[in-house]
Simulated scan of single mutants.
Amino acid sequence: MIFWFIAAVMTAAVTLLALWPLLRSRPVHLASRAEHDVEVYAAQLRELDADVARGAMAPAEAETARAEIGRRLLRAADRGKAQGEAGAAPWKRPMMLATMAAVAILVPLVSVALYAEFGGGGRPDLPLAERRAPASAPGDIQTLIAGAEERLRAEPEDGRGWDVLAPIYLRIGRTEDAATAFRNAIRLNGASAARESGLGEALTQIAGGDVTDEAAAAFERALAQNPDHLPARFFLALNLSQEGRRDEAATAWTRLVEMSPPDAPWLEIANAAIADARGDAAPAAGTAPLAQTAPAQGPDGADIAAAAEMAADDRRAMIEGMVSQLASRLESNPDDVEGWKRLIRSYTVLGDADAAGAAYRTATQTFAPESAAGREIAAFGDELGLTAEGKTQTQ
């Protein structure tokens, strides 16, 4: 109730201010053109008398000039009187009355309508994120991509266009196109840590999460451009873990943790990989043996360099998707011993002991125990501390 009283007082004050120029009983008088002419002709008559007094003009000539100036003075005075009568009594003019009525009625009505639409007291707060410009819808992104592709078809040597399109391809999962775009960007714009790392990530995704030799070479070139480029270090460390080079992997992961900021979202996977490489039990989620990790932050994945602003959950979903691709490939080609080893180790590095155990159990069932492949899988399981039931020996 107090609010509406204050609002009414403020509205009345604004309305009064708008009507004040029309309500004044004695409006400011502005001289008209005719009144100005009267003053000018009167001044000319005074100058004429002065000229006659000092002998600068003959009396006969002065009489003739005085008559002409007098006629002009009378006409100007008549025009001024007519304009004064026409401008008198402003309250009687219909247009002014209509204006005053419109202001007095419309200002309160428009104020109330605008408040009801945009300023209702019961409306919830608008979060800061929603005040920002909304992100483009998927359809809009596809439209932008189509436009960029059309331009590149017309100008295939546009290095800036490839530079912009490559990380977008990588983010939306068009990994083959991303690899091509990164190669074109490197060819036209020159090598950089971000471009080489982006190419390596695209090749890693194409390989279902396996850091291939070509991808590793791209990451090495990225580090040559910028030794502090953390995404390249992440994937090179992942490559060492996948190849089972445990001592080198532990060193690489440790170096990555030491170089990372305290809230880096990939620290959880790095710490889990360090524990795996050293043969320790994997740390619990949310703990950090070598550095503090952000609570509930997943590890970075395939889009660290190309989309550094991606949320941590999206990064974890990306790397888990890569591991899922490898698992799907093994379903259609179960005889790939190295593939099973990479899958089991990937789950271990991710800290998913149940998935690692399930993959190990499936692998042991795929190969006969007395076969070379079966013995290799069993030895690999012993190395990771997995039992025949697919559980770690510490469980």
Rank of each mutant, 00 (worst) to 15 (best):
A284M: 12
A218K: 11
A277H: 04
D336F: 09
H229D: 02
A215R: 10
Q393E: 15
R93F: 12
L22R: 10
A178C: 04
D140V: 00
R71T: 08
A133H: 09
M96R: 15
I6T: 13
Y347G: 08
A191V: 06
Q225R: 06
R329W: 06
A311M: 07
L45E: 03
V257K: 00
V110C: 07
M95P: 02
V38M: 11
A373P: 02
A67K: 12
A275P: 10
A327G: 14
A31D: 10
I141V: 15
T254H: 13
A18N: 03
E220M: 07
L17F: 13
T362N: 14
A306M: 08
A282C: 00
A216E: 14
V52R: 05
D247V: 08
L188F: 01
W266F: 15
L126G: 00
T293H: 05
A62R: 01
I105Y: 04
A116M: 08
K92L: 15
R278S: 02
P265S: 10
E331S: 01
I141G: 02
L203G: 08
A13I: 11
R46H: 02
L326F: 05
T392Q: 12
E35T: 04
D303K: 07
A178R: 11
A101E: 09
G286M: 06
V107T: 15
E389T: 01
G70T: 14
D210G: 02
L199E: 00
A178I: 10
Q142R: 13
A102C: 09
R54T: 02
E383W: 12
W340N: 08
M310T: 13
W4M: 06
L199V: 00
A222D: 02
T287D: 14
A179P: 03
S332R: 15
P262M: 01
D382F: 09
D228E: 14
W253H: 02
R278K: 04
D300W: 10
A191C: 03
D78I: 10
A368S: 15
W20Y: 14
D213H: 08
A275R: 05
Y169D: 03
E155V: 11
L19C: 04
S197F: 03
